[in-house]
Every structure is written in structure tokens, then in C-alpha cells.
Design a protein around this nucleic acid. Sequence first.
DNA 1: ACAATGTTTGTACGATCGTACGCATGGGTT
DNA 2: AACCCATGCGTACGATCGTACAAACATTGT
Lengths: 195, 195
Amino acid sequence: MTSGQQSAGRGRRRYEPDRRQRLIAVTLDVIAEHGVAGTTHRRVAAAADVPLGSVTYHFASLEHLLTSAFTHLAETAAAAFDAQMAAIEPGTDARGKVVEALLADLADNQRSAVLAYELYAAAARNPQLRLITQAWMDSTRRSLQRHFDPDTAETLDALIEGLLLHATLSTRPVDPGKIRASVRRLVPRDVADDR
Amino acid sequence: MTSGQQSAGRGRRRYEPDRRQRLIAVTLDVIAEHGVAGTTHRRVAAAADVPLGSVTYHFASLEHLLTSAFTHLAETAAAAFDAQMAAIEPGTDARGKVVEALLADLADNQRSAVLAYELYAAAARNPQLRLITQAWMDSTRRSLQRHFDPDTAETLDALIEGLLLHATLSTRPVDPGKIRASVRRLVPRDVADDR
DNA sequence: ACAATGTTTGTACGATCGTACGCATGGGTT
DNA sequence: AACCCATGCGTACGATCGTACAAACATTGT
């Protein structure tokens, strides 16, 4: 009757200075696996191997937890994409690198895509989350503007989003050649670093 | 202590041959407002003004209810889009009509977009729902192939999806001119009904 | 060393959930 | 008319949820 709340910890008290940050990361794992609908304080606590009270201490409400997790997701993803774009050396084919980045995203276990769509669905109904997606989209566009003019960046951004979405939701294997052709079609000549 | 389960019905037994179909429609309303996470038997029952038992009778499980609703959504949307594409008379500018359809979708209260993203998020984790989105995407592509060659249809489909997504999640007003320009850019010459 | 302060942890409570089930009822079939 | 069974309806049960809270503890500053 000792009520096993966590498993590994054996009831031992643990000191963990940045547990809060780890809880955010674990929350994203839980969302990816169970969706926002299946994300609860208790499931996050179990996945992080901490007591329930620890989650409710760091995040006053469930909405606060979800918002924090999604914010972290957007900031991390935006920073990663910008780093990829920044790493493209002037003079090389930016279009090709963009396609490579897109395909690499797909090669992942779709975790990032699943998380993004959970965020999109939630943001479509929650103004606060809308701010997060807005900032993410703006950041992505700015990253693309490192190599493309503003109009091209905006359209290319939309095309990439659509290609990624369809690829993620398709059960058929993705043809990298078609993706490359689509991007080349939208951006005929490689625009130099005129920006 | 009469336990008010529904409000309007006043406990009166009602005869309603296609209540099942109505429940599906109401379920989509509930999903649009509260998300999959907030969709419960009881909320659907309340929104449809029927007793809880009626919902569980027509749909054995909550998953069954959600699947039925999403299937209806996909089929309805696919049929509506195909009807729009079929209505385009040969010789007219198909690109412009596609843009018009897209903008009309946006003019709606975003209900359809919200529902679609809820479906996408759920489908990214549920193989059965994936079949629904797959069929929807295939249908959309076939509709576009009424006026564009297969490769163009596929790319255009992705671009439309991305434009719609970004427009839905943006807090800034949408510029129809930019959308038109994006589509024209991807489909330079209007391809005749060569298909 | 010791108080102060922020974390950690276990537990409790009321609300809500999915689901099951038994009885009532009335339209369709014979 | 008599029956039947699909449908309508109310209620109950165990599980799980979000949240609150008080006591135990570790670290930090003095």
C-alpha cells in the first residue's frame, strides 16, 4: 500500500536544478505520442519519472504546460532552420539546400511534423498559440530571405509547408525528385544573395 | 431530483430517423469549437440536444464517433472541391478559379480549416485516419487534374495547402494579390484541358 | 551554523470522463 | 391487431482527470 507513484526513483528525493526544462522536453514527447488530447499532468509526470506534484508545481495549469512546450518547440525549430539557412555558403545552390533540409525533416520519424500539426490545430483555436505560430512563420520567412527575395521567400515557404504536409500524411513513399522539381519550378533561377 | 440531462426536449421522446447523421454534423461543430481534445460524448449530446445514451448507442466508442465525423468531413469537402473544379468551363482561366475557391475557403469562418488541421494532427498518429486524409488528397489531386497535368496538379495542390495553412494561422490580413501571384508563378501558362 | 527560500513529494477531493446496462416506446412487418 | 426489435432514454460505476495543499527536504546566503 505504499502507492507507487513513480517507478525508478524509489521514493528517493532528487535534486534537479533544471527539471522544469526537462519537463518541457518530455511534454513534447508525450504530445507527439498521444496528441494534445492525450496529454495530461500524470502522463507527463510518468514519462519524466517525477511525481505528479512536481509537474503541477512548475506549471500552474495544463494550458500553461502546453503553451510552454509549444513555445519551446517553435523557438527550437525556428533556430534550427535558420542555422541551416545561415550555413549555406554564398554562391552555392540555395534551392538544393532547402530541398535537402526538407527531406531531412521527413527522414526524421515525423516527430517534428506531428508536433507541428498538433500546434497548428491548437493555434487555430487559441489566440495565444497563434502568436507562437505567427512568430515561427515570420522567422522561417526571414531565414529564407537570407537567400531569396521577399516574395520568393513567402511563396517558397508556403510550398515547402504544403509539400511537407502532404508527404507526412501520405502513406506512399516520397519521391525526392518530384520535390526537387517542384521547388525548381517555383524558383527557376537561383537568386543570388541579393539580400 | 429529476436530473436535467437535456434542456429543450423536456424528457419527451422524439422520433428522429436520421439522428445518427445529425450527430455526425454536430460532432464536427464540437470539434471545431473545442478540438478533438475537448470532444466528449456528453458535449456532443448536449450540442445535439439528445441524451447521452443516444450518442453511445449510435457510436459504440468515442473513436468511432470521431472517425465517422472525420470521414464525413473529408468526403464532403472533397466532393465540394470537385464540384467547384468541374464547374469551370473549358477555355476559362482555371488558375483564377482555383484562387477564387481558395479565397472563398478563407472567407469562411475558418471552420473548415480548423477541422482539417484537427484531422491532420489526428491522422499523423492514427493509421485509420491516415487513410481518410490519403483519399482526400487523392481526390483533390484528381479534381485539379481536370484542368492541369498531373505534375502541375500535384505541385499546385501542395502550394494551395501551404498558402491556406499560412493564411489561416496568420493574424495579418491576407493579400489576395499575393496569392494570385504565387499561383500564377507556379503555373505560368494556363494549361488547357489537355487531360 | 542556521534561518530563509524555493523544490520535492505524497495525498486528497470534487468533477468529468467512457462505457455498460435495463427499461420504455413506437414504427414497421406480418 | 399483435408482435418485434431498432431506437430512445435514464442511470450507474469505476477510472481518470485538474487542481489544491501540507509537510519534508536541499540549497543558498549570511
